[in-house]
Design a protein around this nucleic acid. Structure first.
Lengths: 259, 259
DNA sequence: CTAGGACCTTCCGTCGCGGCAGGTTCAAGC
DNA sequence: GCTTGAACCTGCCGCGACGGAAGGTCCTAG
């Protein structure tokens, strides 16, 4: 019968045999030994590792937990906790699940953003690489300035709009910024009908981001003032691209006054 | 007017100013310098970095691309390619998107598996930690043995069934294996009605995995033989858990002959 | 007895920095 | 001009989970 807790008898395996059988590499097994996660119970006189059946059982557990995405440290702790405390295990797996969910959200955001940018490239809307990079810079500035100060407001709006709407808006900014920048650079008059249409879209998007609980006009002014403050605070003397953004906002202001 | 390509005139910024303005850390900027991604154009006589406007522009591009999840090496290469080759950029972003999609699939799988395991724990179906670990080991062995030899077949079935169905099946294995293992250990007679029901579920699941283009009986035999070969090949003398799996399969065989 | 494969330890590399040690320099106030 | 504290410099170790190589020892089949 089985003698539990003793390995006086029974087969021993070399590290290579264990590796071939378990699908792990010899190097990984030695690493587990190094960090104390799984060391061979015995050594031969010459120092070769001899794994016992108990070791093999532990290895299979390690591998199973690693396949679930746990770190080696977490695995060590959960295997140390009475070799299988289900409550600790449940907590760990739950935490792992939370982490994965957060990760999934992040990936979703990035995926959406990349789709938007690729569409812009493929749509031949942006033949100029420099312009494209500038747009990227703008979005970067735009997002970081908002995530620093107005994260809470954005979070509230996000729950109302649904996060997809926010993401969609973000990628729509790309094209909008690009077109308006071109007009700023070209010095297109602010009462140009095309410009007015773009400004209209801008304000629509902006009002979606800011709290428009009061009246609409005050909101737009507030949005603009927010930008002023942000650029002053963030880009203390920096010319790029906060400065370009400021130019763009000034241009927008003039366009609104002209309309 | 702007003098492009020359920075003889214009403001210079220290590394701290750049860091505060861009939201990056001083350490990160020095790292970018170290790896040659972004070095300050000039140095003071004493060695302090002096960043020019060109550097700042490059930094913003780096930050934007990093926010899209690109590696610093990729960023360096795409910024080196004529400072903005849109085709190269498009390729990189596309590759990035592919990577993210693959990542999302992986996360989805892990999430599903974790949900299944947590349900089993919470459902009080598994009061014994050791039994739970054993189940984990089984699933691990099961999956690795299938991913090595029959990956193509599985892939074909996956596209037919839809990946969710395959995932659902995988987590259903957990409970099935656990219950059957208990019967094997307890020595429940193979003609027990409960055991027969479990075997029925097992075969149903298995037939979903294997190609059942021919007749059903041959499929089951083939599935079983596959297991035999796998355990022989993989666990050459290993007692655990391939051996337990072999016992389980033998038990299944006897149950089928009894039925 | 010999050959070649399996095994051993030790160290360096990954990726994107964080953080510290130990030294120099800058800018403001006196 | 002097002091002082903040900012800057280089250089090194650390992280996680190993991969890979160097240089040596051991095992086993023929």
């Amino acid at each position: 019968m089985d003698v539990i807790g003793k390995d006086d008898a029974g087969r021993r395996w070399s590290i290579g045999e264990i590796a071939r059988a378990s699908g792990m590499t010899v190097r990984a097994l030695r690493h587990y030994d190094e960090i104390g996660l799984l060391s061979a119970d015995e050594r031969t006189a010459s120092g070769h590792r001899r794994y016992t059946e108990r070791d093999v059982r532990r290895l299979y557990r390690v591998r199973a937990l690693r396949a679930l995405g746990l770190s080696l440290e977490e695995i060590a702790s959960v295997l140390a906790d009475s070799e299988g405390d289900l409550a600790a295990m449940r907590d760990l797996l739950t935490a792992q699940l939370r982490g994965l969910e957060a990760h999934a959200v992040r990936i979703q955001q990035l995926t959406h953003r990349l789709h938007g940018l690729l569409e812009q490239i493929d749509g031949a809307l942006m033949p100029d690489p420099d312009q494209f990079m500038t747009t990227l810079e703008m979005i970067s500035v735009f997002e970081t300035s908002f995530t620093t100060e107005q994260r809470e407001q954005l979070a509230r709006r996000r729950t109302e709009l649904g996060s997809e709407a926010v993401e969609a808006a973000k990628t729509e900014w790309a094209g909008l910024v690009e077109e308006l920048l071109r007009h700023v650079q070209d010095g297109t008059p602010v009462d140009d009908p095309q410009v007015r249409a773009l400004v209209g879209r801008w304000d629509t998007l902006a009002s979606g981001f800011h709290s428009d609980g009061e009246d609409g006009e005050r909101t737009k002014a507030a949005a603009q003032r927010t930008w002023e403050e942000n650029s002053e605070e963030i880009g203390r003397g920096l010319p790029w691209p906060v400065d370009r953004m400021r130019d763009l906002v000034h241009y927008l202001e003039r366009a609104r006054q002209a309309g």
